[in-house]
Design a protein around this nucleic acid. Structure first.
Length: 445
RNA sequence: CGGAGCGUAGCGCAGCCUGGUAGCGCACCUGCUUCGGGAGCAGGGGGUCGGAGGUUCGAAUCCUCUCGCUCCGACCA
């Protein structure tokens, strides 16, 4: 993409409504525009990152055998009356009447609807296990939306629902989700720690939240610092191997890590003092096993091998996709702007032409641009007629992990400059070497 | 929902107390110079002062109502 043809309305000054760094940078980098309290338009750059994150979530869900589908944002009140949650959910649920006076709602979550789909089409244990998920917009009429996309009213969420014949199988689904989530977050460059959580309005007793450590987080967290060293990495996991999957979960949940809701001071005190940490975290996902809470109230039964009918065992599992943008920025920025991890960056590399209109730099930039595209990379070429400082400032703000600087001085020696946004380190290399390096860097992503 | 604020040009703000021609910086447009970390000079365009009502010869300014937004708290992916 050539910046001169892109839509990137960057702001020099901080919008007054933005208090936390991710919100400020998302506004300043032209990623979002607020339309109303807690409701945002996603401008091209923001939309691009949102789609990258969504793509990672999809890939990791599909990798473990979960099936994508899409349910509507609007639901009928009837469905929610069946589960009893229509009256329980409270003011957070946005209620709407259609022209016939029928009561509708903008879905804050989809347990009822997925259960309705399930009971209509699944009758036998032979169809289990089954995990269906979607990535769809939700609406929760928060009392006090804030922090930009971190606590919006409208937000994009991955919500998945698992159906199993018995408790053991359901717990395996729970564990499988944990592993899949861990890998998703790692691909986004995040350290997200699973922490024992309280269940809230969804219900159920077995639940973990995934927290990204950040000083601006809304939850207070207590943890053994050794958990931050745990990595899933590139290890192969057979998702049907219950023991292997449970083993990974054990590895990630044995060390003490809890939010203030479930904090147990006595257990915490048992952690070696130098590893005992108290901090704040951003919740970016949660998994629940809730048994037959919905299947019983809504009659989602299956026939077992011996011919009896039992309510299906369920779990639900969510990732806050739009919130992740905020969380990633909170976890990865400096005073100049965002620093995107390679896994989610909107463009792989920025090209800065220091002397736009100069025949040599223009043609070198064009060649570089074409070569990168030829390697399957997406460069953002700043071809605006701006001074060097303005171009650097824009690149730093929008946070592409790599920058290639092309100027007459270096070019005279046949060199361009490859700079890491994260470390600020530069190396002078030939144009071809820069392309090779970048190709290598992204080969594994 | 309790408490506290704020709505003046795309963004950041001043002006309001003490009513009298709507301003500044950034951004934008034109020209010249400049050109490796948000350039300089000159010129230019853009605002129903959130909305409605009232007081007044006259309202951004005073009064009433209303809408919107933000912050702190309680609640939450």
């Amino acid at each position: 993409m050539r910046l001169s043809r892109y839509f990137l309305p960057v702001l020099k000054e901080n919008p007054s409504e933005a208090q936390i760094v991710s919100h400020r940078y998302m506004l300043r980098a032209g990623m979002i525009k607020q339309q109303s309290a807690g409701i945002y338009s996603w401008l091209p750059m923001g939309f691009k990152v949102l789609k990258r994150i969504e793509q990672i979530v999809h890939e990791e869900q599909i990798r473990v055998g979960h099936l994508p589908l899409l349910m509507p944002t609007l639901q009928t009140a009837d469905l929610w009356r069946e589960s009893g949650r229509y009256d329980d959910y409270g003011q957070e649920m946005l209620r709407i009447k259609d022209r016939q006076g029928r009561e509708m709602l903008y879905g804050p979550t989809n347990e009822e609807m997925i259960t309705d789909i399930f009971r209509a089409h699944v009758n036998s244990y032979k169809d289990l296990p089954l995990t269906l998920y979607q990535i769809q917009w939700k609406f929760r009429d928060e009392v006090r939306p804030r922090f930009g996309v971190m606590r919006g009213r409208e937000f994009l969420m991955k919500d998945g629902y698992s159906f199993d014949i018995d408790r053991d199988s359901a717990l395996h689904a729970y564990n499988r989700h944990m592993v899949s989530y861990l890998r998703s977050y790692e691909r986004m460059g995040l350290t997200a720690i699973p922490m024992r959580a309280a269940s809230g309005p969804i219900g159920g007793d077995n639940t973990h939240e995934f927290l990204v450590l950040a000083s601006t987080g809304e939850s207070e967290v207590f943890y053994d610092s050794a958990v931050t060293d745990l990595k899933l990495g590139a290890r192969e996991v057979d998702v049907d191997d219950r023991a292997a999957v449970a083993g990974i979960c054990e590895e990630f949940t044995t060390l003490y890590a809890r939010t203030d809701e479930t904090h147990d001071q006595a257990l915490f005190d048992a952690v070696p003092e130098e590893r005992r940490k108290v901090g704040r975290g951003i919740e970016v996902g949660q998994i629940f096993y809730f048994g037959t809470k919905y299947s019983e109230s809504m009659g989602a039964n299956v026939v077992t091998a011996d011919g009896s009918r039992v309510p299906v065992e369920m779990g639900s599992h969510g990732i806050g996709v739009s919130r992740l943008l905020g969380a990633i920025i909170e976890a990865s920025h400096d005073d100049k702007g965002i620093i995107w991890p390679e896994g989610v960056t909107p463009f792989h590399v920025g090209i800065v032409n220091l002397k736009q209109g100069d025949a040599a730099t223009d043609s070198a930039c064009n060649a570089l641009y074409a070569a990168l595209i030829g390697k399957g990379l997406e460069p953002l070429y700043d071809d605006r007629d701006e001074r060097a400082g303005a171009k650097f400032a824009t690149m730093d703000l929008i946070g592409l992990p790599w920058r290639v600087t092309v100027g007459p001085r270096g070019l005279a020696a046949g060199k361009v400059e490859l700079t890491s946004r994260r470390t600020g380190e530069s190396e002078e290399v030939s144009l071809e070497a820069a392309v090779d390096r970048l190709t290598q860097i992204y080969a594994s992503r």
